[in-house]
Design a protein around this nucleic acid. Sequence first.
DNA 1: ATTACCCTGACGCTGCGTCAGCGTCA
DNA 2: TTGACGCTGACGCAGCGTCAGGGTAA
Lengths: 249, 249
Amino acid sequence: MRFESLTVGELARRTGLTVRTLHHYDEIGLLRPSRHSGAGYRLYTVRDVARLQQVRSLRQLGFSLEEVRDCLDRPGFSPLELVRLHLARVREQIELHRRLCARLEALADYLQGAGEVPADEFLRTIEVMTMMETYYTPEQMEYLKKRREEVGEERMKQAPADWAELIAQVRAEMEKGTDPADPTVQALAHRWQALINEFTGGDPGIAQSVGRLWREQGDNLVAQHGAQYDPRGVSEYIGKAMAAGKPSS
Amino acid sequence: MRFESLTVGELARRTGLTVRTLHHYDEIGLLRPSRHSGAGYRLYTVRDVARLQQVRSLRQLGFSLEEVRDCLDRPGFSPLELVRLHLARVREQIELHRRLCARLEALADYLQGAGEVPADEFLRTIEVMTMMETYYTPEQMEYLKKRREEVGEERMKQAPADWAELIAQVRAEMEKGTDPADPTVQALAHRWQALINEFTGGDPGIAQSVGRLWREQGDNLVAQHGAQYDPRGVSEYIGKAMAAGKPSS
DNA sequence: ATTACCCTGACGCTGCGTCAGCGTCA
DNA sequence: TTGACGCTGACGCAGCGTCAGGGTAA
């Protein structure tokens, strides 16, 4: 008796698994003990133990319980296929996590550099990040990062205020009904273009992405910062002003 | 009405989420619509939409729904802490997956090289891999890999048969009751040592690991290959023979 | 009346953890 | 009798998917 079979508890201790796990494997038919005692106790034989080893090995490779079962029970069965499939899955996971990791690192750096950051600024930062990721291609992101370094830390912090002021001025003219071709508005348009150039380095692809972001998410951005209205109106107005500024195109 | 609020379906379409997801967020209190129609329809206001944006952003960073809720609802709250914690988790995940990936690649290479591999050989291969990983340190694994390359493909394939023959001979002497100091057994002991040296390069740490593996898993190995009995007896016997061979130590 | 919405349950999935209530006893 | 084990349910976890069986809006 002593050598012939093990109870669940004994098997659990030897393998480091829990009794519940073995119960579960029994329930789903992955590992049913070959024998039972009169009282219904599970009795695992040497063969069962061997099978459990196989199960554990396959599980350590990250396969699901169902895959393990297929692997062990289905007679004609291509392991290479399964391994390749699984490998592809794992690689994809790694890629996703690596990207995530990069974003989190960027975020952590920012938070560290900015000192005590209140929760709402944190949230705004994240949203800007995700928005940029949706609207810019990775190459554009790379390029913008370089630009930021060239432009410098100080300048970057000043930028939002510059924009806010400029937008307010444009809106004022717009509401006064000033002609977009008016010199005042033309000056503002130049300033607008200059600001864009400063951060995009004049890359037209990026300017285009910014435009799309603004058109599609303007309302959202505005709702976030809770200050201005009618962003599309403003950008349309400034667009006209720019067009009026260079009638050659 | 048109501008003031959205129904679930509309909001779902705009965000790309499903209605069920929005229902779920409502259920767990993550995003409850500010208003309801007379018939109990959920009506999402601009503020709700903004909050949903935040939720999505945080989710894209991989946070759990509970963490997102804490992030959005708890007033004093350190984002940096959370980001760091999460970053650590993600990095750990990546590490685990990278290790797994390496193992799967090794396995895939082996399967590819071996051509059409039947399921049972596949299983044995895996078990040997996992067993080795439990009993050898990573450095030892590295070292063994180098040895395998030095020894060559052909030799590796011959090895199991050599071992089987040698073990059979040793067992025969043991069962005849031959003295471990007998020249016949001494010759076998030398051959044993030579085989070990061939694959371990004489590294004593590895020899020790092999010994431990054999002592602790011998029964299992034997059960797998279904051929021999009493592995500990054999290794004890050969151990005595080696000791008898060099009484100086 | 049709159609396209909306609602609230409630179960399913993965891989077990964690009781609860009861029987066994190597 | 009392532990230390064993047994079978059954719920819980995350984050929704997916019906089912209704009401509502235009």
